[in-house]
Design a protein around this nucleic acid. Structure first.
Lengths: 169, 169
DNA sequence: TTGGAATGTCAACAAAGCTGACGTATTGTT
DNA sequence: AACAATACGTCAGCTTTGTTGACATTCCAA
């Protein structure tokens, strides 16, 4: 560690060294593991997986979203998504209704049961996230989000910002 | 959103609302996609996958590490890791040497070729990370790391801190 | 010397991604 | 009216990466 009398201040570029970048990479790896572990544990008792979680999450976020829209957000093939949606619909967690304006489209909603599952999963994930937020403090949270947003692909950043702006400002 | 005339300051608890937590969850989801996309693209031309990337990354980080140690870090079963290591060893990217003190253990090192692959992957990942760091600034980076660290499981935080302390002080 | 730890292998399987092909209904365009 | 494009669903088959369970080998340590 440099003993220059200067802190690693905003004017320093020390935060861009290879070592710092490597630490960030590992932080992402380990943190993502924690991030997914609680919902994964819940789902492992329910014949569902992480893919189902993502589906119900984004349907909750945008009720009435179409299959195609969900496809773009999730970044998977329709076959892969279809496999997940089929089970969710069959199990009565998601409803699929023919579009009013465009009858080719299917609009997706969570049923009561689907909403309950989504809530259970996001609550579990939220407990960890909130605890991390509280531990790190609001300034850190702002930085956390700034770096993550800068790390996204352009397309995803648009998706993210659209959602964020609904509540954020 | 409350219009209190107060900014969302350090003393406010607004950053702990459900909406803020939900935004953080999506930030993690979208950012992790970006985070893995560059190495994934490189690997898709090489008959390797993300699991191989993780293996060479952590062997690079701790040369001579044992299989068991790697198992703990990666959090997968030995069968799963073994499949990956077998191909890496067969392809001459990783060397496995019998332990000197404990001959049951295998010590893992990257060969020249393995180190080259690891460099290619971590360079690609580093470009994105560094760019995100630069865009967000050093204060944000500190917050980013603080939140991620708080989000880890205890075991992983120990792994992470051990590595971090090697370069970080 | 015996028990347990570390490693490896075989087999079988599951989740979740992929490509390619095809069918149907609907919509838009010419 | 004919044709092309879009949205969705599905079948078949494949890949990667994870899982259990069973079992063998080697070797340290009590």
């Amino acid at each position: 560690m440099p003993q220059t009398g200067q802190p690693q201040s905003a004017n320093s570029l020390l935060f861009l060294t290879d070592e710092q970048v490597r630490i960030g990479i590992e932080a992402m790896f380990f943190a993502y593991r924690g991030f997914t572990s609680d919902p994964d544990r819940i789902l492992s008792n329910k014949a569902y997986g992480r893919a189902h979680h993502r589906a119900v999450h984004f349907i909750q976020r945008s009720p009435g979203t179409t299959v195609n829209n969900l496809l773009n957000i999730l970044g998977v093939t329709k076959q892969s998504l279809n496999r997940v949606l089929r089970t969710l619909i069959a199990d009565g967690l998601v409803s699929s209704t023919v579009g009013r304006a465009d009858k080719r489209e299917r609009h997706l909603h969570l049923t009561e049961a689907g909403a309950a599952l989504e809530r259970e999963l996001s609550d579990a994930q939220g407990v960890r996230m909130r605890s991390a937020y509280r531990k790190a403090g609001p300034e850190a949270v702002a930085g956390f989000r700034a770096v993550l947003e800068a790390m996204m692909d352009e397309d995803m950043r648009r998706q993210y910002s659209a959602m964020k702006d609904m509540t954020d400002g």
